[in-house]
């Protein structure tokens, strides 16, 4: 009993799924709401992935949709073209869906490694430009590759992702990120974020830690891409444009950068909000944008910045100072410190 009280998430998380499932069965939540929840789940996984780089390690990845694109296309190729999962019995479908998802994650992780390896050895904002370029390059390559539908898009991907699987992957992602943050690697990343020079001085192999975090992040983004592909059943290169990457950045910074709970809430609320606002017709996105401005003005650290859900049992604090508003200020301070170090 005492153990249960301490580990209430073992009960609470399955309970959340059961409640949603029962509401869906009894037609209280229609497919429209379920669809939004599923998309929100995909966005939560993506925002978690971004949080590993931007929030925990303090690097700037602004083309994260590129990794999502790799994951989505690799997994769709796997399940549609190589194995034609649509014609399989349900159990085999599930197995191949999971294999396709992992293949998507590995594909994205390989690209993450190839990009992170050279760029993360440098200190500064080089990663931002490289990831931005990477996103565009991937999109252009997909657009001219006939095997994945080129500019016409890839259609007829089997619908293998369900509410259940998305929920499972959201939970797994949350726990991977949580444990990562709480591990020696994660603490190393936090140290790099707070002061790279100091972390280096303390004996942390900064480029190794940064590459590790970046590759993990790319892997998770690939998983999210697979979920996206098998939910929507249609992929188009232009979906993974720079705008898509910006969406995830907005979810992350409005939710609370550096906070796992913040990235969950930010992604969920900001995915659902435009749909809730549908009754406002053309004013919808005006109100949405206005709310974002208000959030950042009144809570520069994001909705959940510096806080975590109790069930995650995370004590890692001290992230108030990397809110959106003083992101650049922090950079200057760091540069000054670095310059001082150098002059000594």
């Amino acid at each position: 009993m005492n153990w249960l009280r301490k580990n209430s998430e073992v009960i609470i998380l399955p309970l959340i799924y059961v409640v949603i499932f029962l509401l869906q069965k009894n037609k209280i939540l229609n497919n429209y709401v379920i669809q939004i929840i599923m998309l929100a789940g995909v966005n939560i996984i993506m925002t978690q992935s971004l949080n590993l780089v931007n929030g925990m390690t303090g690097q700037n990845s602004i083309g994260h949709a590129g990794f999502m694109a790799v994951g989505a296309y690799v997994s769709a190729l796997f399940s549609k073209i190589i194995f034609n999962a649509a014609a399989m019995p349900p159990t085999m479908q599930t197995i191949f869906f999971l294999l396709a998802t992992i293949a998507g994650g590995i594909g994205a992780a390989i690209f993450g490694f190839l990009i992170g390896m050279p760029t993360l050895r440098l200190k500064g904002d080089y990663l931002a430009i490289v990831t931005l370029g990477f996103g565009e390059v991937i999109r252009s390559i997909i657009r001219i590759t006939p095997a994945v539908g080129a500019a016409r898009g890839l259609t007829g991907i089997p619908k293998l992702a369900s509410l259940f699987w998305i929920f499972v992957f959201v939970v797994i992602t949350i726990y991977i990120c949580r444990n990562y943050m709480d591990s020696a690697y994660g603490r190393g990343c936090l140290a790099i974020r707070d002061n790279e020079v100091a972390a280096d001085t303390m004996g942390i192999n900064t480029s190794k830690y940064k590459v590790q975090a970046f590759v993990t992040s790319a892997f998770i983004a690939g998983i999210a891409g697979s979920m996206y592909a098998h939910t929507l059943r249609y992929l188009h290169p232009d979906v993974f444009s720079y705008t898509k990457s910006t969406d995830f950045l907005v979810y992350l910074y409005a939710g609370g950068v550096g906070s796992i709970s913040g990235s969950i809430l930010g992604a969920f609320i900001l995915t659902a909000l435009p749909e809730v606002l549908r009754f406002m017709n053309e004013w919808r996105l005006v109100i949405y944008g206005g709310l974002l401005v208000i959030i950042i003005l009144f809570r520069p650290v994001g909705m959940f910045g510096g806080k975590e859900f109790a069930f995650l049992k995370l004590k890692t604090g001290g992230i108030q100072h990397i809110g959106f508003s003083n992101l650049f200020q922090r950079k200057t301070k760091k540069t000054i410190v670095a310059n001082e170090e150098a002059s000594r």
Partner: peptide
């Protein structure tokens, strides 16, 4: 955006 179009179609049909 395709995913928003899917939401819109779901909303129109279901609600």
């Amino acid at each position: 955006k395709p995913e928003i179009a899917v939401n819109a179609a779901q909303k129109l049909i279901e609600q």
